[in-house]
Write a protein that binds this DNA or RNA. Sequence first.
DNA 1: CAAAAGCGGTGCATTTTTTGCATCGCATTC
DNA 2: GAATGCGATGCAAAAAATGCACCGCTTTTG
Lengths: 300, 300
Amino acid sequence: MRHLKDFQFIEAVIRAGSIRKAAEDMNITASALNRRINRFEEDFGYEIFERLPRGVRLNPAGELMLHHIRAQRSDFVRLQSQVADLSGVRRGHVSIACSQALLPYFLPEQIARYRSEHPGVSFGVNVRDRLEAERELSTFASDIALVFEPRHLVDFEVTLSVAQQIYVVMRPDNPLAGQTELRLRDCLAHPHVAPSAQYGVRVLLDTAAKKTTYGRIRPLVESESFDFMRHYVIHENAISFQFPIGLDLSGAQGYVARPLSLRDVEPGNLLLGQLRGRTLPVASARFVQQLAQALQTPAG
Amino acid sequence: MRHLKDFQFIEAVIRAGSIRKAAEDMNITASALNRRINRFEEDFGYEIFERLPRGVRLNPAGELMLHHIRAQRSDFVRLQSQVADLSGVRRGHVSIACSQALLPYFLPEQIARYRSEHPGVSFGVNVRDRLEAERELSTFASDIALVFEPRHLVDFEVTLSVAQQIYVVMRPDNPLAGQTELRLRDCLAHPHVAPSAQYGVRVLLDTAAKKTTYGRIRPLVESESFDFMRHYVIHENAISFQFPIGLDLSGAQGYVARPLSLRDVEPGNLLLGQLRGRTLPVASARFVQQLAQALQTPAG
DNA sequence: CAAAAGCGGTGCATTTTTTGCATCGCATTC
DNA sequence: GAATGCGATGCAAAAAATGCACCGCTTTTG
C-alpha cells in the first residue's frame, strides 16, 4: 500500500541501523532514502532518528513512532481481513505465541479444525516463554498468546484463564504409577527431572517444595524441553512434571501421567490473551473464540 | 502529513458525494482525483465506493475504511501529542461531548484549572445527548464523553461513574423550600416543569412517578433546556428537576435546590468515558484523570 | 422525446516529484 | 595519517501526478 511506504522505509532503516545499509536492502539509493527520511521528519515536525557517526538510531520520539507504525500496519491488516470477510472469502493469517505444552496435541488439533472450515487462513506458531510472549504481543509480532502464568499483564488482556493441575510423568512400571493421585513428598523422594527456572511449572514446584521437609526440588536433569524430559523418564526410571494439556493421558506414548495433589501444589493458570486494547483481525478473533470454547470444555 | 493525503481525498469524496464536487473542494482536477481513488482501490484490493449515476457512495467495505481512516488520523494526533509531551511542550486539543448540566459550573472550572497548568492545550466542548455522545466518540469527533445515563455502552468505555441525586429547583419563597429533603408526591402535587423525554432526569422521574398515585408527571412546560427551566421557575412559582452538578446550591442565583428523596427516585449516573479500546492523546488522558479526581472528590 | 446536464473514466501533453549519480564534510577506525 | 563509512546536497534524469480535452453513460429538464 502506497501510504505505508514511508513506514516500510523507516522500519528498514531501524533494522539496518544505517540509511545506507537500509537503502541497499530496499533497492534504492542512499540519497533517495535519506531524503525520504528527512522529508518525513520535517513533515512530522520532530526528528525520529539520532544521527550517529556510524549510522542512525531511534530517539524516544522514534520509539513512539515505531509503535505507531506497527499499530497502523496491524490495524490495516485487520481492516483487509474484515473486508475480505464481507465478500465471503475468509482469508487471513493468525500468529500465535504459545508455551511448549500446546504444541503436541492442543494447537495442532485446534488449528486443523479451524482450517478445515476456513482453508484460506494460514497460521504462524511460535514458542515463547511467558515474558517473550507479552513482548511479542506488544510489537504486533503475534496476535494471540497462550501461555502459563504470564508475568506483567500490563499490556496483556486476558480473554480466558484455565487452571491446570500439574501432572507427574513416569514409566508405567514406576512404583508411583499405582496411585491415582500423587503427593509432592513422594515425588521429591524419587529421582526427578524438572524444567528450568523460567517455566511456570518450576515456579509452582519450587514454591510448594519450600513447605515440605525437602525444602527444594533436586532435579537429576534440568531442561527447557518438556519433550526431552518426557522421553528421558522412559530411559532412566525417573519422574517429570508437566501440565496435562501437553500430555497424552492414554498411556499409548510409553509413559503414564498422574495428577499431583492440589493439597500440595497449586494449579497453574493457562492464559489466553491478546494485546490490551487491540482489535484483532477477523480470523484471529474467531480463532480466539474457538480456543476459548475448547479450553472451557472440560475434555481431556 | 504526506501518507494521510489519500485519506483526506477519500474523506472529501465521501463528504461531497461525488468525485467532481470533491475535486473542486480540494482544488484539484476531477480526473486527478478520480485516478487517485481508482489507484487506491486497486492497491487496497477492493472497491470502497459504489458508482452511481449521480455520484459515488460508500459501500460496506468503504464504511469500514472510513472508520479505519478516522482511527488512523486520531492515533496519529495522539502520537504527535505524545511526542510533543516528550519535548516538554504540552500541547494538544481535548474535545468533549457532554450533557448540558456540565456547562455552567463544572466544566468551565475544570477546563480553566487544566489550562492554567497547560496553556498550550485547547478545548472543544459540545453539548450532546447520551445517544449522540456515543456516536460522537465512535466517529472520533470527541475524545471524551461526560453524560448522564448513556444507553448502549457497546463502544463506550466507562472510566468513572458518579451517582447524582435529582434535585428540585424552586424559588426561595416556595413552600417546599422549607424542607431539607423533598418527597416525590409533594413535588408532583405542585406545578412543575420537566425536561423532555430524551433526558435522563425525565426517565428517572417517569419511572418513579409510575409508583405513585399520580401515575405520571404532568409538566406545565416541557423543555430541552435546563437553563430555561431554571429561570422559568423564578417567574412562575413552579418547581423544576435537575442534577446538582449543574446547579448553584448557594442560593445566590435566585433559586434554591433541595434533593429529592432517594426513597422515591433513584439517583442518575453521570458517566465519564471514551471510545472502547482507544488510547487517548496525552492531553485528553490527563484531563480525564483530572475530571475523575474532581468527580470523586465529594465537593459541591 | 430529445436536449442538456452531471457523472465517472481515459488518452496525451505538461508539470511536479522522486530518484540516481557524483561529491562534500565529518567522525571513527585501522 | 590514510582509509573507511556515514549522512547530507547539487544537479540532471526518470517517474509520477496532474491538467486538459473528450468519451460514454444515465438522469434530469424543457
